[in-house]
Design a protein around this nucleic acid. Structure first.
Length: 566
RNA sequence: GGGGCUGUAGCUCAGCUGGAUAGAGCAACAGAUUUCUAAUCUGUAGGUCCAGGGUUCGAAUCCCUGCAGCCCCA
């Protein structure tokens, strides 16, 4: 059901209700909200409405009686030309089911063909902008598999938002300042000393990962023994910065390879060192609004008055700004850039962090509902049916890069989007690698390749070129059940996308694609495209081209390729 | 101790924001190629939607209570 059909129906319903309201003296001041949905079962018509059931109580009549009055008014109203709604009937407890004129479906199919790779895109929300922050992993090490999930989900979500018409800004926040950078510098420095054969104490809370040794080796390569002439502090600081740069470059390369491109990489360090001193501004603003106090030498933000369960330190007694403080400044920066919505995808360990940031935003006079914090749950890697444990402490983490060396990007991205954000996800490495029917990615890609191959064969035999002028093809001859089912699914693509965007559920895209491809495969098995009869042949070519297009558009949203051959 | 998430077929999960007879895939069983790709399709079997209560025309879906699992914070 496209927008035009929905609007026309809604208009007709409202007009019928207005008539009834007078003639039956219902005396309603306002009509309840009409819900129009696509029934699961085609026996229930093309569009189903619960209008009678919602009205029943208000007008104190049984639902089926209300439905009958409604249908009478609707049909007598002469609101619709006969070629819009064929009939409306009562069903079950009081549903009103509309049967739309057949030609509408074929017009929508033509629409799919004419819009091609633009089909599903909308410009309704042109003025609304969304800021989407995702991954934002610490630059103290390589990306892990949770980042891989967040990256797939975030990037897909961004593509969906873009498609339904939002102005999307993708950002990666780099925590390249503060204590962890010092720790990183100390860790690298210690490994560097070890490489030169010296025995040093490894910093207590340092980073133990093997990649630290790798960084130390690179630095040894670059500087030789020269750093030994620097002061200990200089070494730690410079090594820390170099390590951050190396890690960040590594993360960027991994993400690029994963087809994720950010609009901006926002550096915490640059923000802190900015001449406008944003942190100081935040402090002044919070003090102005009387939301801070000093205790034991530290500066506190009284976040409890905004619903947090305890107050938070902004500046420690040593005069160091906390991470929280920097985050508040960062979010304020986002606000100043004027987005209508700011969404953050957080890792599972950051839950509990939301209330304090929201508190701070409210404390500065910003509206809470401009922000959305969403948790992306953990990833459980499975190999040979057993879970591969990750432990950052022991330095044994499964790197995103390693995963991508084993599993193709197409499969990885597809798998990571296959669950709701807040459910933990089991990632079966063996299944993702498997080139078989068990693998859901191939199921969808295969349908695409199959269609392309029909066209290839057709072209080879007839020498005709594509695309045909679809507007000249008689689509009305697509009457078989499988054909109609397929068309109905195809034209539901835009609605599905809207839903996915509003619910922030990228998983609806792969689910839709699976259903679409199942319907296509079913059609393919039962009917031939290259039949002798010209009219039917061209109509079917149109149908599968539309299918191919929608599969392609759907896969593109997931950042997955649509192969022509498999 | 506080908080978050999850609980649907033997397994992994959907269920379009409250609709009609709860659906897929895998596994099991029985079938389908003289034909455009069998990485496919058709059928059979499989259910106390964790339990109990509430809200209403109507609940897997919303609200309480409890149970179980995973994870954060202290």
């Amino acid at each position: 059901m496209n927008q035009k059909i929905r609007e026309t129906l809604e208009k007709g319903i409202t007009q019928s209700l207005t008539t009834l309201n007078k003639s039956l003296s219902w005396d309603l001041e306002a009509f309840p909200e009409v819900s129009l949905e696509l029934p699961k079962d085609s026996k229930h018509g093309d569009v189903s409405s619960n209008i009678a059931m919602v009205l029943a109580k208000k007008v104190k009549k049984p639902p089926r009686e209300v439905a009958q009055s409604f249908i009478d008014a609707f049909e007598k109203g002469g609101i619709f030309p006969e070629n819009f709604v064929q009939k409306a009937e009562i069903a079950g407890p009081g549903f009103v089911n509309f049967y739309l004129a057949e030609h509408l479906l074929y017009e929508e199919l033509l629409d799919v063909l004419q819009q091609g790779d633009q089909y599903g895109r909308s410009s309704v929300r042109k003025k609304e902008s969304i800021h989407l922050e995702f991954v934002s992993a610490n630059p103290t090490g390589p990306l892990n598999v949770v980042s891989a999930r967040a990256a797939a989900v975030g990037d897909t979500l961004a593509r969906i938002f873009d498609a339904v018409g939002y102005n999307v800004h993708k950002e990666f926040y780099i925590n390249d300042a503060g204590r962890q950078v010092r720790l990183l510098g100390q860790s690298v420095e210690a490994r560097y000393q070890e490489l030169l054969g010296k025995t040093v104490a490894f910093p207590e809370e340092g980073y133990h990962g093997e990649y630290i040794v790798g960084i130390a080796e690179q630095l040894k390569e670059k500087y030789g023994e020269e750093p030994l002439t620097w002061s200990q502090e200089d070494r730690e600081q410079r090594f820390g910065q170099e390590a951050i740069d190396l890690n960040l470059a590594g993360q960027q390369a991994t993400l690029k390879n994963y087809r994720v491109e950010y609009d901006t990489w926002f550096s915490e360090k640059e923000m802190r060192e900015h001449k406008d001193n944003p942190l100081e501004k935040v402090k002044e603003q919070l003090i102005d609004w009387n939301t801070t106090y000093e205790k034991e030498g530290a500066l506190w933000f009284s976040s409890t008055q905004f619903g947090d369960d305890k107050d938070r330190v902004l500046v420690t007694k040593e005069g160091q700004p906390t991470y929280f403080f920097a985050d508040v400044a960062y979010h304020k920066d986002k606000v100043s850039r004027g987005y209508s919505k700011m969404i953050v995808l957080m890792g599972p360990d950051h839950h509990g962090y939301t209330p304090r940031v929201l508190a701070a935003m409210e404390g500065m006079g910003y509206k809470r509902d401009k922000f959305e914090f969403r948790l992306v749950q953990q990833v459980n890697l499975l190999k040979n049916g057993e879970s591969v444990k990750m432990s950052k402490r022991a330095g044994k983490l499964v790197e995103m890069k390693d995963l991508l060396e084993e599993v193709p990007v197409d499969a990885a991205r597809y798998f990571f989007v296959l669950r709701k954000l807040d459910s933990p996800l089991d990632f079966d490495i063996d299944l993702a690698k498997e080139q078989s029917s068990n693998n859901p990615v191939y199921y969808v890609q295969y349908a695409h390749a199959r269609i392309v191959s029909i066209f290839a064969k057709y072209q080879e035999e007839t020498g005709e070129s594509f695309p045909l002028d679809w507007a000249k093809v008689d689509l009305n001859c697509l009457k078989e059940k499988e054909e109609v089912d397929l068309i109905k699914l195809l034209v539901n693509f835009p609605t599905m996308l809207e839903g996915a965007a509003e619910a922030r559920e990228p998983l609806r895209v792969p689910n839709y694609l699976k259903e679409l491809c199942a319907t296509f495969h079913s059609f393919y098995t039962k009917h031939r495209v290259r039949v002798d009869e010209k009219e039917l042949r061209e109509a079917r070519l149109a149908l599968i081209e539309a299918t191919r297009m929608v599969i392609h558009n759907g896969l593109a949203l997931l950042g997955v390729s649509s192969p022509n051959k498999m």
